[in-house]
Design a protein around this nucleic acid. Structure first.
Ligand code: MN
Ligand code: MN
Ligand code: MN
Ligand code: MN
Lengths: 231, 231
DNA sequence: AATTAAATTTAGACAAATCTAAAAATAGAT
DNA sequence: ATCTATTTTTAGATTTGTCTAAATTTAATT
C-alpha cells in the first residue's frame, strides 16, 4: 500500500470494530465528556476488558476518544460526530426496513447493525430523502440530522405519569425482541393514546385506558414505555 | 465461543473475503468445473498468488471449491450456489440504487460491493419484490433467481453484427466507470435500437444508426456493447 | 494507614488475512 | 531428456482484533 493510503487508513477509514466501539461509548453517555469505564464498555459489547483497553488506545491515537489510563474514555468532538453518523445510518435503515420492506420493529435492529457500516454518503442521504426525512426510528428513537443534531422531545416514562394524565406512546426504552413482541401481542403500539386510570401501591402496576380499551400493565412494562404528554 | 458456534462459524458463516474469492472464481469461469489458476485469481483480485493459495486451502476445507495443488481451483456445487447468491445480491442492490435512489449506472458497483455482503435472506427477497423481480441489472447483466437460475438471452456483441442487421442494446461487457461515462456522453444507453450501416475494414470502426441519428463508433466500443438481435 | 477487593492494564498467545522471499513444481523449448 | 522460465507453494512475518492469565492500580474497608 502506498504511503498516502496508509495515512488515509490510519486517520480516516474506520473499521467496523472501531465504529461499534464509538457507538457503544456514545450510548453509555461518553458524548458529554463523561468518562466511561472499561468494564462498562466490555459488558455492553460482550467482550473482555482487556480488548477494550487495546481499542481505547487505538481510538485515542486517532483522536476519537480521550483516554486516561485506569480512568476510562470519553468521546472527543470528532468522536461524537462519527458516532452520531453511525447512529443516524442505523436508525434510517431501520425506518427503511419497516416503511419500505414491511419488516416488523423487532426484526430491524439486527440487519441495521450490518447496514450502518456501509460507506456511502450519497446512499444515506438518498435513503433519508426516500423516507421523507424521518425524525424518529421505529422504536421512537430520534434520528440525528446530517449535521449531528438531535430532535428533542418532551417525553417521560409511562411509569412516571400521574394518575388521570394522558399522552401518546412515542417510544420504547427497552427495544429487545421479547419486549417488542410482547407489546405487539398486547396491541400496544407507538401512536396509541394512553391514559393512566389508577396505580396499585402493592406492585406499582398501572390500570390504563388505551384507545378506548382498559387494561392493567406491570411496572416493568410501564417503565419501558415513553409517553409524550398532551399539552 | 461455544463449541456449537465454532462449528457454525467454520461450516456456514462466510467471511467477506471468502465471499469475494468465490465470486471472483465464478466470474473467471470456475463454475463449470473448469480449473482457475492461482495467478488469474490473484490478478483479478489485486492480491498476491500466495494469498490465493492460502484461501484455496480454506475454501477447499469448507467444501466450496475443489483444489488440486499446482492445478488451480474450481467451484463445487455448493460453491456455485453460494457465489450465485452473492452475485444475485450485488445485482439486485445495483437495480435498487438506480431505480429507487437515482444513482447513475457508473456509481452503483462500488456501493453494491459492500451491500452484497449483508446477511439477511428476508432483506434480499424484499428488495427483489420491491423492484418487481428484475431480470437484469443496470449494466444488462442477468440476475440469478433465488434458486440460482440464470436468465439466458440471445445476445451478441455489436462488433459481431453483420451489416444492415439491427437490434436493441441490452448490455455492456466492460462496465468500468470511464466506459459508462463515455456511453452517457455519447447518448448510448441500454434500450436504444441500433442498426449497423457500414463497417470500415481499415480500423474495424462501425457506422451505426441509433434512434434515428447516425454516428461512427470505434471497434473498441462496439466490442463492449451487447445487442439483442431483432427477430 | 494498612489491608483487601475490584477494576484495569500488560504480556503473551491465537486466528484471519495478508505480504515478501525462498523453495518447489510445472510447462515450454531446445 | 534436459534445461529454463514461469507458476505455484511454503515459510515466516505483519496487522487487526480478540482472548487468558498475571501484574498493577485504584477504591473501599477496617
Ligand atoms: Mn437498533
Ligand atoms: Mn431503533
Ligand atoms: Mn457491479
Ligand atoms: Mn452490474
Amino acid at each position: 500500500m502506498s504511503n498516502k493510503n496508509v495515512f488515509l487508513k490510519k486517520y480516516f477509514l474506520m473499521t467496523r470494530s472501531e465504529e461499534n466501539y464509538l457507538k457503544t461509548i456514545f450510548h453509555l453517555g461518553g458524548g458529554d465528556s463523561k468518562s466511561i469505564t472499561t468494564n462498562a464498555i466490555a459488558e455492553q459489547m460482550e467482550t473482555k476488558p482487556s480488548s477494550v483497553t487495546d481499542m481505547a488506545k487505538k481510538l485515542s491515537e486517532k483522536g476519537l476518544v480521550d483516554y486516561v489510563r485506569y480512568q476510562g474514555v470519553s468521546l472527543t468532538a470528532v468522536g461524537v460526530k462519527t458516532a452520531l453518523s453511525i447512529i443516524r445510518k442505523h436508525r434510517l435503515w431501520e425506518v427503511f426496513l419497516v416503511k419500505k420492506l414491511d419488516f416488523t420493529w423487532d426484526e430491524v435492529h439486527e440487519v441495521a447493525e450490518q447496514l450502518e457500516h456501509i460507506k456511502s454518503e450519497k446512499l444515506v442521504d438518498k435513503i433519508d430523502e426516500l423516507l421523507d426525512f424521518p425524525k424518529y426510528d421505529p422504536h421512537g428513537d430520534p434520528i440525528p440530522t446530517k449535521d449531528g443534531k438531535f430532535q428533542e422531545r418532551d417525553e417521560k416514562l409511562l411509569s412516571e405519569m400521574p394518575i388521570n394524565s394522558q399522552g401518546v406512546c412515542v417510544g420504547v426504552k427497552d427495544s429487545s425482541v421479547p419486549f417488542l413482541k410482547f407489546l405487539d401481542k398486547n396491541r400496544i403500539a407507538l401512536g396509541n393514546t394512553i391514559k393512566v386510570l389508577d396505580k396499585e401501591d402493592f406492585d406499582n402496576s398501572l390500570r390504563i385506558q388505551m384507545d378506548g380499551k382498559e387494561m392493567r400493565i406491570s411496572h416493568q412494562i410501564a417503565a419501558n414505555l415513553y409517553v409524550k404528554k398532551n399539552d
